[in-house]
Design a protein around this nucleic acid. Sequence first.
DNA 1: TGACGTCACTTGTCCTTACGAGTTAGGACT
DNA 2: AGTCCTAACTCGTAAGGACAAGTGACGTCA
Lengths: 259, 259
Amino acid sequence: MSEIQRPGALYQQVAAAVREAILTGEFAPDSLLPSEAQLMARYSVSRPTVRNAIAALRAEGLIDVRHGKGSFVRSSGQPHLTIERRISRTADDRFVMPNGDIWQEVEEPSTYRTHTTKDTGRLLQLDEEEALFGCDRLLIDSSTRTRAMHRTLIPFEVAEAVPLLGKEPCKPPAAIYWVLTQTGHKLSWTETVRAHMPLPDERATLRLPDATPILQVARVAHGADGRPLFLEELRCGADCAELAYRITADKQPAPRARA
Amino acid sequence: MSEIQRPGALYQQVAAAVREAILTGEFAPDSLLPSEAQLMARYSVSRPTVRNAIAALRAEGLIDVRHGKGSFVRSSGQPHLTIERRISRTADDRFVMPNGDIWQEVEEPSTYRTHTTKDTGRLLQLDEEEALFGCDRLLIDSSTRTRAMHRTLIPFEVAEAVPLLGKEPCKPPAAIYWVLTQTGHKLSWTETVRAHMPLPDERATLRLPDATPILQVARVAHGADGRPLFLEELRCGADCAELAYRITADKQPAPRARA
DNA sequence: TGACGTCACTTGTCCTTACGAGTTAGGACT
DNA sequence: AGTCCTAACTCGTAAGGACAAGTGACGTCA
């Protein structure tokens, strides 16, 4: 570590120096970084500059800062929880996922009525402002304490067409799958995976650290005719969970020539 | 908008006010937010406080700030690009993904030798420090200009066992699949999806805006005996890409009672 | 008319100062 | 010895000032 001066801003130089020290292992994971005062002295800069550099490293998810204690190198271990998404097999999953099934509800599910947004409308192939039943659950994985938000959205139209559903459409997803298959639907589904930064309320309920994206998977169940029947959405912190898809080959077509 | 005072810090109050204005649509997407000076006057706070509030909104991905111009509400549209991951069918994908196949290389692939890390070792079921061939490509989707980083990792052991591979193991993935199936392997694979914040170099090569996570999918191809043969990894910005898995039901087992 | 330069606006960087608030260890008092 | 309190560290918040650097519009000059 020395007074490198290549890149642009001062705080970026400080950030770059500390970042490199972290990535090369000079500062081990979980270890305590120099305090702001020490960094000020080390690089002969003011406190705002140091704090600016530290803010950059926080935004990159490299460090965690604890009030009154100091900055710590984040132990960027792999996610503790692998959520297995079952393919080519339907709903004997107990709750949300097949995953040996560790999810537990930590609160009463909250049910409500809402409308399609641009987002959910696209997935459900509906126009905007179509009426939906909604049901939100807060889940927790009992072994890793990982939290997840689960949401079910059912169009009014579908709920009305399926008597067992209409009265109480906010059953657990497995029950919805069951009702639908019992009423003669042959289901297939599509899963769409996305990631985004959490809003403050999502950060709070999922207990996410700084600079932690949300991994979001939306499962849309389709009937035999291809029409979407309902939407099931799971959101959890990308720091502690990953999704796994197991895919079996059936046929082996010849590839096109070059590639 | 008024001088609300509920939550904790001043800058958080300002951030909360602006955030709410954005989420309720008071500030439309792509519209220009009040300047720092205007916010200072509006809430009677100093410039550092305003900048702190703005920094919070940037970290949430709600706004984009352009030097000399101002802050703009980010148009949080859905991703432009849906990357379809094919299931239960093997490698006639032209390049990386089946997706109609728009990826083009924008640079020469760079090949190198490396070793397993804790991460890749876990996926390839190898110890740490096992020798690997590596090949990195920078891809671009010709219609949406979406960029993606692609990496192939092949254990020395595998490359040596497959003559066609040994000489030049850094072929395009489709070619690797082809070679492996030609030499009698019956492949299946596992895809693991994760998200994380980019490091500065990743941000630069993918041209990512602020507060944009990277969506990362690792595909591990297994032989008939279940042993991992090689690893293919794709990383792209979560702002403009999503992953889609299409899943067809085959049997409909009865669910367990309650759920 | 066209090109250029200036100016007023924006955000970016950097400094100084001050105090509040969480944490921890050690010393003083009981 | 045990308890409590203080002091010294940590980071968090807030204010002030100053100048640099992008941007765009307007006005001047050729």
